[in-house]
Design a protein around this nucleic acid. Structure first.
Lengths: 202, 202
DNA sequence: AGATAGATAGTAATAGATTACTATCTTTTG
DNA sequence: CAAAAGATAGTAATCTATTACTATCTATCT
């Protein structure tokens, strides 16, 4: 037909599939994403997906893996480069906000996976992702207290919960307004209040 | 057969239907709730539901109405009974926490409705509910600033977003731990940080 | 290099299950 | 008895997954 090749190697197709799902999740309810919609966005037929994944859950699994690597990777880098725990906290927040601004479907997928009944693998992956994220926050908050940057009587667990809720609130607000850009623009103001709450401000 | 009546009047069935949906939403992904599951929980056949509701969306619509009345009703009462804006803020928070503790499916349904594509009626009802809630918060926060109970430079919009995010974070944490009771037990610690953030604390 | 064999990637069609919704008949209730 | 409420048994649409077949790529062997 035309000059371009039509058959891609498996790993590239797998990566493209993950991208397609993340893209679709930004536009619609993640649990309503069908294999037909995924294939259509990739320019494939529905059945072709199952050459690369044994099941639909395996696709979601790959997505969760991708999210874990990307998000935690960026977060860890932000932590390493920061001068102090308080600075790291802010860097992590901004990194997180950047990530969900680039991929608005991700927090919705995570939330959606968490509310699945039973014990699916994608759900457990979502749980461990958020747990690992929480542990990093916990460490940061403890270090901040030790350095006197945060309130001495701060409850790190509560602070970690609120940190994640801060992002979640911004996501919700952006869905209300049907405007993804609000996540980024509203983030500094909301985080300023959080910072004052944990004690890292003038 | 037995002594109990089997046919209920329409309005009681409608109320029972709403309860069934709210109950199911606590156990599974709200968008995966089927009319079969609703009917089963009510001890009815699936087709019988459509004697009382013309469509499934009409059922969700009734649920959103129910949530709006109950939640905003309780919130307004809490505001009226509070002595000051800061006290009202705390009363609203605790009221909200009580509500989602009693009905853990509700915040998940709201979140789920918001991420539907298109312009369904249940979605618009969810949007207006949260907007009205936000307006009440806004009023409270402005009043708190005027009275000097809150920081003078507080951004009320950001504070309202964080308020809702605070609840959302607690809901997420409870889903992570698969333990609804954590919403209530973790709430005070998280809210304390929020309060310090907006300036209403020692 | 060029032919070719085998693996990989894709299509089209469809099976089997599940969904919201409906048409018809039966039971209950006032 | 008549009207409301429910049961039974459908229908059409939609979803995941599979099957039979075809196209494309890649490595080997003379």
């Amino acid at each position: 037909m035309n000059g371009r090749s039509r058959h891609l190697p498996a790993d590239e197709r797998r990566a493209a599939t993950v991208e397609a799902v993340v893209g679709l999740a930004a536009e619609q309810n993640p649990s309503d994403i069908t294999t037909t919609a995924i294939a259509q966005r990739m320019g494939l037929t529905q059945g072709a997906l199952f050459r690369h994944f044994p099941t639909k859950d395996a696709i979601l699994q790959a997505v969760m893996s991708w999210v874990t690597e990307r998000l935690l990777g960026r977060v860890d880098k932000a932590v390493e480069e920061a001068a102090s725990p308080a600075a790291a906290l802010e860097a992590v927040f901004m990194t997180h906000i950047d990530f969900v601004s680039d991929h608005p479907g991700v927090p919705r997928m995570l939330f959606g996976e968490l509310q699945r009944p039973g014990e699916t693998l994608p759900k457990r992956m979502a749980q461990t992702l958020i747990r690992h994220y929480g542990e990093r926050l916990h460490t940061l908050l403890d270090a901040g207290k030790a350095r006197g940057e945060l309130h001495a009587d701060l409850d790190p667990e509560a602070a970690a919960t609120l940190f994640i809720g801060t992002v979640q609130g911004l996501v919700m607000q952006s869905m209300l307004a049907d405007d993804v850009t609000r996540i980024r623009s509203d983030a500094p103001g909301v985080f300023a209040i959080y910072l004052r709450g944990v004690g890292a401000s003038s």
